[in-house]
Every structure is written in structure tokens, then in C-alpha cells.
Amino acid sequence: MATKKFMFLNRKAPYGTVYALESLEVVLIGAAFEQDVSLAFIGDGVYQIAKNQNTDGIGMKNFSPTYKALGDYEVTKLYVEKESLEARGLTLDDLMDLTWEDEDDDYAEKPSIRLVSAAELAAVFDEQDVVLSF
């Protein structure tokens, strides 16, 4: 099958609604299809990858560790919109440390999160073949 550019567009916070969790489930399944996969976190979507999530008190599964496994699935392009992060008073330090191992570079650990401006992200969107919005 042909390779297409797939973008998973995440704009909702976790736990309040199921979209973040079920989006992640699609990403994991989609990884098996060997497409060119990217994720974008915009608006409240940036809260999906916030550090220190603890769901003990709400009886829901904390699925944030799953984002750390994305690198093992060769999902290595996680775009975070700078404007969205700043509007929420957050910096990269508030986000989980998400990395992948580059086997072409002696398994060097590289950051998966790419902090980009709205204009840069717009250009990335424009290149996509399929955008799945959650």
C-alpha cells in the first residue's frame, strides 16, 4: 500500500472527554500500517502530554505513560503549537519528556516533541494527506 502522511489533530484535554484516549488508541493501531504519522497538540490538546498526571482520585486510568511508548512504535513527530502552550502559561518543562531512539544514529535518544509556531504548524498541516481530528 502507498505511504501517506497522516496527521492526528488533538485539541481536547484528557479525562473530561474520551477523545484524547481514543485518539491515542488509533495512533497505536495506525503505527502498524507504516504510514508517515504525525501528531499535533493544539489548544487544550497540549494538556494531554502534561507532566505529573495522577488519576487516583477520579477512578480513571492514567493513560499518559502511553505517550512515552510512542517512540517504540516509530511515532516520533509530536508537534506542539507554541502559541497554545504560551496561552496556557506552560513551557516545554511542563510537558512529559517524550523521546525516541534513532537506530540510524547509534540509537541516540532524541526528543519527539517539536515546539513550533502556528505558521510552521500550518505548513505541516498543508502537507498532509489525511487529517484525523479528535
Binding site: M1, A2, K4, F6, E25, V26, I29, G30, A32, F33, Q35, D129, V130, V131, L132
Partner: peptide
Amino acid sequence: LGQLIEGGIIADRQ
């Protein structure tokens, strides 16, 4: 869920 991804691959527009 693979059916969703496959749909995106096969179709001209998703």
C-alpha cells in the same frame, strides 16, 4: 481501528 487507517490510505479524501 485498522479499518479507519486503511480507509484513509485507500480513499482520495478522508
